[in-house]
Structures are given as structure tokens and as C-alpha cells.
Simulated scan of single mutants.
Amino acid sequence: MDILGWSLVIILFIVGMAGTVYPILPGALAIYAAFFAYGLCITFEPFGWVFWTLQTLIVVALFVADYAVSAWGVKRFGGSKASIIGSTIGLILGPFVIPAFGLIIGPFVGAVIGELFVVQEWKHAAKVGIGSLVGLLSSVVVKVVLQSIMIVLFIVWLVV
């Protein structure tokens, strides 16, 4: 059962970290699920209320930061609500439409199209598209850091 438990934990950690750049994967929820996989297959004994509270707060912070940081990039470059929505749609659909580069092209094109509905000026819309990329890359950095903290806390709780 230990081998199954550790295998699930490692797989869920990999899926979680891959979710930082590929939005269709569950990301933080996969890492959170790894803690339950460990508990169910091995033991919940090392994890008390402090562990679960910290991990839950990090997951909540990840969800808030994911949207807020991406939206910040668009807003910082003068984008409207339509460009934020377009960027989000592009982020979700981009990897399916253009598998190799859709993660970058999708949010950019989505933000530009969204902004063109409001402003109808190509130069401004392109600037907002760049802002969506800045927001996306900033969001990825925040997610990598917070999800790494989740994994490190898990390991620390097992060792201590």
C-alpha cells in the first residue's frame, strides 16, 4: 500500500506542477489531492489542523492569485473587462486550437479581440495583448512558488 500511496502522491505532484502552465490540469487541487492519497494509502497521522489550515489557505490564495495576477497584467496595460474575458477564453481554448503555442498565443489573441470590441484600435489592443502575456507569465511564477511551498510543507510535515 505504501508503494501505491507514494506513486499516487508523485503522480499528483507532477500533474499539479504541470497545471501551472497547462490550465486544463487541476494544478493546486492535484497537489491537495496528493495529501489525501497519502493519508488514505499510508496514514493521516502527521497531518493536524495546522497543516490542513495552511494548505487550504495556500489553495485559496492560488485561486485568487491566478485570476487576479492575470487580470492585473491586462489592466496594467490599459485593458478592459472584455479583454480580460477574451484573455481567459484564449487561455482555455488556445492549447486545444494550437497545441504547441496555444498557451501563449491564445491569451494574447483573446485579449486583443476582446479589446477590439471595446476600443477598436489595433495599437492599443496589441498593447493589451502584451499585458495578457505579462499577466500569464506572472501568474505562472506565483503558482510555481505557492505550489512548491505546498509540496515542501508536505515533506517537512512528514520529516518533523
Score class of each variant (00 low, 15 high):
Thr20Ala: 15
Phe35Asn: 02
Phe108Ala: 01
Ile42Arg: 01
Leu12Glu: 10
Phe36Asn: 01
Trp72Pro: 00
Ile58Pro: 04
Ala34Asn: 08
Leu103Val: 15
Ser132Asn: 06
Gly39Ile: 10
Ile104Leu: 15
Leu25His: 07
Gly102Ile: 02
Val50Met: 07
Gln120Ile: 00
Val144Gly: 00
Gly16Arg: 05
Leu4Met: 11
Ile105Asp: 02
Val119Glu: 15
Gly135Glu: 09
Lys123Pro: 00
Gly27Pro: 10
Ile89Asn: 01
Gly114Phe: 02
Ala34His: 06
Leu137Lys: 00
Ile84Arg: 02
Ser83Glu: 03
Leu103Asn: 08
Ala126Asp: 07
Gly129Asn: 09
Pro99Gln: 14
Gly5His: 09
Met1Leu: 13
Leu54Trp: 07
Phe47Met: 10
Met17Trp: 13
Val21Met: 14
Ile14His: 09
Leu57Asp: 05
Gly19Asp: 11
Gly131Lys: 07
Val140His: 02
Ile105Lys: 02
Phe35Ser: 09
Ala34Leu: 11
His124Asn: 11
Gly39His: 06
Gly27Leu: 13
Ala33Trp: 02
Ile98Arg: 06
Val152His: 02
Ser7Pro: 04
Thr43Asn: 05
Ser70Lys: 11
Val9Asn: 05
Ile151Lys: 05
Val160Phe: 13
Trp157Arg: 15
Ala37Asn: 09
Leu29Lys: 03
Leu137Phe: 15
Ser7Lys: 08
Val141Met: 14
Tyr32Asn: 00
Ile31Thr: 08
Trp49Gly: 05
Phe13Asp: 08
Val159Thr: 13
Ile11Cys: 11
Gly86Tyr: 05
Ile10Val: 15
Pro26His: 06
Ile14Lys: 02
Val64Ser: 10
Ala65Trp: 04
Ile84Ala: 11
Phe47Trp: 08
Ala30Gln: 00
Gly131Gln: 09
Phe77Gly: 00
Ile104His: 01
Leu8Lys: 04
Gly16Met: 09
Phe63Asn: 09
Ala125Ile: 10
Phe117Glu: 01
Pro46Val: 11
Phe101Trp: 14
Gln55Met: 14
Ile155Val: 15
Phe47Lys: 10
Trp52Arg: 07
Gly19Val: 12
Ala28Ser: 15
Trp157Phe: 13
Val160Tyr: 03
Gly27Phe: 04
Ala18Lys: 07
Leu8Trp: 10
Ala30His: 02
Gly94His: 00
Ile24Trp: 13
Phe117Ala: 08
Ile98Cys: 04
Tyr22Glu: 04
Phe13Gly: 05
Ile104Lys: 01
Phe154Trp: 12
Trp157Glu: 15
Gln55Leu: 15
Gly94Thr: 05
Val21His: 03
Gly79Trp: 04
Leu153Ala: 02
Cys41Leu: 07
Trp6Ser: 09
Leu136His: 08
Leu54Asp: 01
Ala33Val: 13
Ile105Ala: 11
Pro99Tyr: 12
Gly129Ile: 03
Leu136Lys: 10
Leu153Tyr: 06
Ser139Cys: 15
Val118Ala: 06
Gly135Trp: 05
Phe117Tyr: 12
Val59Pro: 00
Trp49Glu: 15
Ser7Tyr: 03
Val15Asp: 04
Trp157Tyr: 15
Pro46Lys: 05
Thr56Leu: 14
Ala18Ser: 13
Pro99Phe: 13
Ser83Leu: 03
Pro23Met: 10
Gly135Gln: 11
Val144Ile: 15
Gly86Arg: 03
Ala111Trp: 14
Val128Asn: 02
Thr43Gln: 08
Ile3Trp: 10
Leu57His: 10
Ser139Met: 14
Leu91Thr: 12
Ala37Gly: 03
Val152Lys: 03
Ala28Trp: 01
Ser7Val: 14
Ser80Phe: 03
Asp66Asn: 14
